[in-house]
Design a binder for these strands. Structure first.
Lengths: 156, 156
DNA sequence: TCAGCTCATTAAACTAGGTTAATTATTCTC
DNA sequence: GAGAATAATTAACCTAGTTTAATGAGCTGA
């Protein structure tokens, strides 16, 4: 999926790894998030607001996705309260994650964000290129390399 | 409310203005958000995860709040699907807002974030001290003052 | 009216991170 | 194994934003 598209798909990642990224007008990319196996994902806010998505999605590994249409899910919401509840809880989870990321950007410098990333997504660092991690942290690959060097000498 | 408290209150701001802020270990404060009249608010993610809140709340103006307990609201969720739906939609709105703020921090520099703030919260700038705006943007009052000076000379 | 606040501005020195570019690993291909 | 990509590191210089401190501009209250 590309930024500007209108997607109404909900996907369950059965295997593989996706990255979600924004692009600036001058071509730079910033990773919004990674989604790996056993996670649900969608351009949900774009769907809810009936707007084109602001971000693009790229498969970083060979993926196996189970896909359905979000309209179907919304129909389920109408059908029975248990689906509505599922929808609520999923939205709440999304909110909690994004709020935590907001706090990180407000409070933490790049080094702290990097260490958070390692704790929060164990194993992911080995699966993606370093410049993708940097982009997720909101810094350049050069800056991340510097931070890693510093951490190595600080805690060898 | 103070960071570390467990609040289970939901408030409707009838009049006045609140600010929500994080504090770093060395005493610095960062405004997470402002909530003005006719808005609902709560330490919702803390309530959902059954954790103490990470942020504090301060009234910036004389406020009139209508308060109820979130447990009551959750009971309503069980009572009838229409409440569950309301809960879902509110959670979705929260998510959409936080996702937008994530995008800002990833993509925009301080000047752009300031201009966004002005557009997005018209009238608010006149109601709060400038250093509160700076804190919301994630910069120091000094930096904001410089940005304002630059904007004045650029577009007099 | 003046002293005592708090807030905004300005300046100067500093720092984290950006930019550019060169260098070194890695991996892939043939 | 040689060449050719692609990634990561390093270095040198640059910039946006921080820190500290001084100054000015409103308020407020006795």
């Amino acid at each position: 999926m590309r930024a500007g598209d209108r997607s109404t798909e909900l996907a369950f990642v059965n295997a593989g790894l996706l990255r979600f990224f924004y692009q600036t007008t001058d071509g730079k990319e910033f990773n919004k998030s990674f989604v790996a196996e056993n996670q649900f994902t969608a351009a949900y806010s774009a769907f809810l607001t009936d707007m084109p998505a602001r971000f693009s999605i790229q498969a970083l590994e060979e993926c196996h996705l189970l896909i359905c249409d979000l309209h179907m899910v919304v129909n389920l919401f109408d059908r029975h309260g248990c689906w509505e509840r599922l929808g609520r809880i999923l939205a709440e989870q999304l909110f909690i994650k994004k709020e935590a990321r907001e706090a990180e950007f407000l409070l933490d410098d790049a080094e702290t964000r990097y260490r958070n990333f390692q704790k929060q997504y164990p194993g992911l660092e080995g699966r993606v290129a370093q410049y993708h991690v940097a982009s997720y942290l909101g810094i350049t690959p050069v800056a991340l390399s510097r931070i890693r060097k510093k951490l190595k000498t600080d805690f060898p």
